[in-house]
Amino acid sequence: MKFGILVNEGPFTHQASDSALQFVTAALKKGHEIVRVFFYHDGVNNSTKFSDPPSDDRNIVKLWSALAEEHGVELIVCVAAAMRRGINDEVLAPGFQISGLGQLVEAGINADRLVVFGD
């Protein structure tokens, strides 16, 4: 099955991003396709390379980057939501790209299921 993923919350404050990561990892392991992960609302905060949690905690940003690196998962950050929150190309972690909301709608059109992770 082709899944689109929408992440609406930032890392750590909410579990949404962790759940999305685990869902994507499990779906890929089962042979499903992830057409795109789209980050919206505070979800754009998952994309900053300056995230630096304590070493005994999971590093959510790095886990997303690793998914992009290892499985070619497309990580798209909404430009308008990102600009509001001080996220631009200069702070993006590897694997993330900034683009428009059309990418979210397109993911909804092209995927069999769009799964929303949020509050």
């Binding site: 919206y40 609302h41 939501a81 428009g100 909301l101 059309g102 709608v105």
Partner: peptide, 19 residues
């Protein structure tokens, strides 16, 4: 919270995509 305002943006884009 900003959810309502930002969600409305997606509605407008979806309409622009003729959904």
């Amino acid at each position: 919270t900003v959810y309502a305002l930002e969600s409305l943006e997606v509605v407008l884009i979806s309409a622009a995509f003729d959904q």
